[in-house]
Amino acid sequence: MGSKLRLTSGMEGEESVNSPRRLITVRHGERMDLAFGDWIRSCFDKQGKYSPKDLNHPRRIIDRPPRAYLNDSPLTPIGEFQGFLFGQALSDPAIEINHVFCSPALRCLQTCHNILKGSGLNETLAVNIEPGLFEYLGDHVNILPTWLSPKEAAAGTGMNINLDYVPSIISQDLLNLHINESHTDYYSRCHTIVQNIISSTNSGNILIVAHASSLDSCTRMLIGKELPNWNSFQQHVGRIPYLAHSNCLLNKSGKWEMIKPMFPGVTISLNQRFDYPSAWSMLPQ
Rank of each mutant, 00 (worst) to 15 (best):
T201E: 09
C102H: 07
D92F: 07
T8W: 02
D185Q: 10
C43L: 00
N196K: 14
S246F: 07
N205S: 06
R22S: 13
C190Y: 06
E12S: 14
V127E: 02
H178T: 08
S73T: 15
D164K: 13
V141A: 05
L116D: 03
R22P: 03
Y186P: 02
N205D: 15
L85W: 09
G238C: 05
C112R: 01
P228D: 06
D33F: 07
N122Q: 14
S214A: 11
S42Y: 09
R60T: 14
D92M: 04
K225G: 04
Y165T: 12
H57F: 14
F263E: 05
G158V: 10
Y136A: 06
N247G: 03
F263Q: 06
H99E: 00
N202C: 04
S3Y: 05
D173A: 11
I208F: 05
P150I: 05
I259N: 13
E152W: 06
S168R: 09
S9G: 12
P74F: 04
I208S: 06
I198R: 01
L34K: 13
S217W: 08
C102W: 08
R31W: 00
V237N: 07
D164W: 01
N251G: 05
N114K: 14
Q272W: 05
V17K: 13
M159Y: 03
P228L: 09
A210H: 10
L174T: 01
T25N: 09
V237L: 08
R21Y: 11
H57W: 07
G48I: 04
M258S: 14
Y69F: 15
Q110N: 08
S253E: 13
G10F: 00
N71A: 13
R27H: 03
Q195N: 13
A155W: 02
N180I: 07
P93H: 08
G204I: 09
G224E: 03
E30M: 03
T157C: 01
I208T: 08
D185N: 14
S253C: 10
R27N: 08
S171G: 08
I169L: 15
I161V: 05
L133R: 00
H178G: 07
F44W: 10
C112Q: 02
P150R: 04
L207D: 01
G138Y: 00
S182L: 12
L175E: 15
Y165H: 12
Q47S: 13
Y50M: 03
T201R: 11
V237H: 02
V100D: 01
A212R: 07
F233Y: 15
I197W: 01
L109F: 05
M11L: 14
R22M: 12
M32K: 05
E15Y: 08
I97V: 15
Y186G: 01
A68H: 14
L222V: 05
S203V: 11
E15A: 13
S119A: 15
P150N: 06
T192E: 11
P261V: 03
S278G: 09
H245W: 04
P52V: 01
V209I: 15
F101R: 05
N98Q: 04
G138F: 06
A68Y: 13
P241T: 02
C190R: 03
S103K: 02
Y136S: 00
A155L: 11
N122F: 05
N114L: 08
Q235G: 07
